[in-house]
Computed example of a mutant assay.
Amino acid sequence: MNDFRFGPAEFYLVGFEGTRPDPNTFRALSDLIESGVVRLLDFVVLAKAESGEVEVLELEADGEALGLGHFEPIAAGLAGDEDLDVLASEVAPGQSAAIVVLELTYARALAQNLAAAGGQVLRSERVPAPVVNAMMDILDQEGA
């Protein structure tokens, strides 16, 4: 049987007004981590000055100052320099963003069980929540 140490991971870029996110923003993330639904693989904060210069803040060095010292990434550094450069280009000057890399623990169990049965996930695609909700609203209206 295949024993998967990790499941699929997703990168999220979460934007904020100003150069520092409010730590309360991540309460929902903390709840998901504590419940075991996801595992935090990496977490980086980018702050872009009005001049366009990007400051990279990592939890190991800056977590306490950001009020996020309770987050403990399993694979700090997974979001590499190239990822940071690409994602930083999407942050407007004078704003900040968090790069959050999450392992989907339920998907690890699914992939492991499929592999044990001789199958494998060939492709996965995420449909954003606003799109799913809009489609469900349309379907509800058609069914009414």
Rank of each mutant, 00 (worst) to 15 (best):
L104M: 10
N133R: 15
L102M: 00
V101L: 08
V54H: 07
G94Q: 09
G36C: 08
G143T: 11
P130F: 11
E17Q: 13
G119R: 12
D22V: 06
A109E: 13
A129F: 08
A76W: 00
D137S: 13
P130N: 06
V132I: 07
A97I: 06
G63K: 00
A9K: 08
G52L: 08
E53M: 08
G63P: 03
T25A: 15
V101I: 14
P21M: 05
D3C: 12
F6M: 14
A129M: 10
S30W: 03
I33C: 05
A98K: 00
Y12T: 06
E103W: 02
L13Q: 03
E82L: 08
E142P: 05
F4D: 11
R108E: 00
D81E: 15
F11S: 12
P130E: 13
V100I: 13
G63D: 08
E60Y: 12
I33D: 02
E103A: 01
E72I: 04
K48P: 10
G94R: 02
L87Y: 12
D22C: 05
D3Y: 14
E53D: 13
P21H: 02
G94N: 07
L104A: 09
E34V: 05
A28V: 09
G94V: 05
A79C: 06
D42C: 01
M135H: 15
E53K: 14
A107M: 13
P128K: 01
A115K: 13
I33V: 15
V56Y: 06
F71W: 01
D83E: 09
P23F: 02
A111R: 10
L114E: 11
N2L: 15
A88K: 06
V127R: 04
A61G: 05
P23L: 03
S89V: 01
V131T: 10
F43M: 09
F11N: 09
L122C: 09
L104D: 10
L87T: 02
A47S: 11
D85V: 07
D3A: 09
D140I: 03
E72C: 03
L114D: 05
Q95E: 15
Q112I: 09
V127H: 06
R108C: 03
A98W: 00
A144Q: 15
L41E: 04
D140M: 11
E53A: 13
L78P: 01
V45F: 02
V131P: 00
L139G: 07
E103R: 00
E55C: 04
